[in-house]
Each structure stands twice: as C-alpha cells, then as structure tokens.
C-alpha cells in the first residue's frame, strides 16, 4: 500500500447548541498531520457532537473547522469524505445482505471511474478496475484477519471482527485522516489491544488518526496528543504524557479529595 500524507485538522472556537443546551462550547484544538490524536472526557455529549461536526453530519453554530488549510464547516459530509476524511460510527453498521468482502469493496467505490454505460458494456477499463478492487480487497482482508470470513455475511461476524471490518472498510481508499467514534466500546482487553496495534499500523502508513473514546488508559497509551473535553469545553490539550499528569484532568475525572489519603 502506498503511503499517504496525513491531513492536519484544526478546530477554531467551534460551538454547537441544541435548543438551550450548549453541547460544544468554543472548542479549539489542532490535530498534527500524521499523528494519533485522542479526544476524551468524563461525559458523553460533547465528544460525539464534535465527531458529527467534523465529518459534516451536523453544522456548527460558530467557529471554523479546517482540513489542512481548507475550511470544511458547513460542507456536506460527502464532500468532506471526498476530501480525504474517513470515519467510523459508534454503532458498527455491517451493510445488510452483503458479505465481508463486499463491505470492503464498497469502501473502494471512489477508486472506480466507470459510469453506468461503461459498467454495462463491460469493457477492458471497468474490468481492470474490478480486478484492482478485488486485489486491494484481498490484501486488506488479510491484513485485518478477515480472510476466512470473507464470504460470510458481514452481519454474522462476531462483534470484535465487525469493528475491524468497519475500519478496513473506512481506510480502504487510503484516506488522509481517519476519525473513529468510540472504536473500543464493547471490546474486551485483548480486542482493545489488537485495536491499538491496528490503529498504530494505519497511522504508520501515513494516515492521521483522531480517536474518540472513553477508555482512558487505552487512549493515553495509543495517542501522541490528547485533548480533554469536559461539559463541552476543552480543559486540556497537548502531548499525552503531560495531559495525563495534568491536575485539572485528574480533577475532572476523579474529583478532588477533601480528606487525606489512606494507605493500604
């Protein structure tokens, strides 16, 4: 697989309101190109909304989101996807009635140039594109350990493998940045470990990775940089090791003790 140049993502004072509730409050942070960036926080709402805003499924009420130097605030999710942003969804969605192989092949849809006419005529051009798609799929399936299940219905996969399929499907077209919405939810320790290895590999190929998750130790061990969001506002952002030691972050998660500490 050829290397891609990872995209940079910048959020500048992004705000989103739902009725009277401010879900995202003046959020600013930068994802360095080629890095693995984590987004964590003690409560749910703000982070999920950010994912929707970045990928274009919802429109921000204020602020700018930039992919490299191009503003993508208010741009349709399809256009953002075509600019090189791939994402996974919280609910792992296997495409109904389609095999594991076919799911990955859909991920390669953008590699095709053939329209209706050329597809119907089955000329050498579209046949070549089919061959290339098939070959790329075989390689991806092997890398993600899905070769044996390739011709099973995706919906029949065990949950852990389904998560991996989702990622394989999303990165098939070699996107420049991959956005993952709680990829570790529902996975056990072993599967989470394998997931981390996988994401490091994806990042190694050049793709910028932005992960949102609740499993904090997983995030701190995987990510280069981490941004912490509490009640819709950024409370810390920077190199993972530093953010992990930041007392503000500790306080957000653990609260502050008024009593002294007891020894074991």
């Amino acid at each position: 697989m050829t290397s891609t140049t990872g995209a940079a993502l910048t959020l500048d004072k992004v705000t989103k309101r739902f009725g009277g509730v401010v879900a995202v409050n003046d959020v600013s942070f930068s994802v360095a190109p080629g890095s693995i960036h984590g987004l964590i926080g003690p409560n749910g709402a703000g982070k999920s909304t950010l994912v929707s805003l970045i990928s274009g499924y919802q429109r921000a009420d204020g602020g700018t989101i930039r992919l490299d130097d191009v503003a993508i605030t208010g741009v349709s999710p399809l256009r953002i996807a075509l600019r090189g942003l791939a994402r996974t969804f919280q609910a792992a969605t296997p495409l109904q009635g389609m095999t594991v192989r076919e799911n990955v092949e859909v991920g390669l849809h953008t590699t095709y140039t053939a329209g209706l006419a050329r597809t119907l005529l089955r000329g050498p051009g579209v046949r070549r594109e089919d061959r290339e798609c098939r070959a790329a799929t075989v390689e991806l399936l092997a890398r993600y350990g899905l070769t044996e299940s390739a011709d099973r219905l995706a919906a029949d996969l065990p949950f852990g493998q389904l998560r991996f399929l989702e990622i394989a499907r999303a990165i098939a077209r070699e996107p420049r940045i991959l956005l993952l919405d709680e990829p570790a939810a529902g996975l056990d320790q072993t599967e989470t470990s394998a997931l981390a290895d996988l994401l490091r590999h994806v990042n190694g190929e050049g793709t910028t990775v932005l992960v949102i998750d609740h499993d904090v130790p997983f995030m701190f061990s995987l990510c280069h940089d981490v941004t912490v969001v509490n009640f819709g506002s950024v409370i810390a952002s920077g190199v993972a090791a530093e953010v992990a030691r930041d007392p503000v972050v500790r306080d957000a998660y653990l609260g502050s003790g008024s009593a002294g500490e007891e020894t074991e």
Partner: peptide, 8 residues
C-alpha cells in the same frame, strides 16, 4: 487514566 505512556 492509565500509566503515562513512555515515549510514543
């Protein structure tokens, strides 16, 4: 929060 990562 996990153990802070060593040089990532």
């Amino acid at each position: 929060l996990g153990r802070p990562s060593k040089g990532t």
